[in-house]
Amino acid sequence: MNWESWLLSGFLATLVLSTLLSLSQGIGLTRMNIPYLLGTMVTPDRQRAKLYGFVIHILNGWLFSILYVLIFESRHLASWWFGMLIGVAQALFVLTVGMTLMPSLHPRMASEQHGPSASRQLEPPGFMALNYGFRTPLSVFVAHAAYGAILGSFYRLSSGR
């Protein structure tokens, strides 16, 4: 495994992922604000939450890319299309399992069964995060596909495969 290549391609792919998700919100594809969603796990302060969430998301994306690299190494295959395939699979997992579990994982998130309380006031994402806009899955798939594709192609280039 080429550690330098992982650090570089992982960081680049994460930046693109964050940019695409933010862009999707800006152009109205989704209301989902990932930094805000993650940041409110640690603080109720809206502005700080967005900053903390951004840092969490970057670190998370960076660390998560090691899984991609491990898969590339184990299959002896690193390419844009293989990375994209893993990205789509990850997006599917995030949207179906991750988002459904979110009210249980997020300390400030309410649920349709229990309603909001003083400590849980955030709207849950629902299946496929459709509560955050019906095009949310589209933006998540596109962003993660791009993340995987960049990771695959840059890891291949920078590790000289």
Binding site: Y36, A110, P116, L122, P124, P125
Partner: peptide, 9 residues
Amino acid sequence: EDAPAVLPP
């Protein structure tokens, strides 16, 4: 316009 929206008790 940001999700998740805050739903006050």
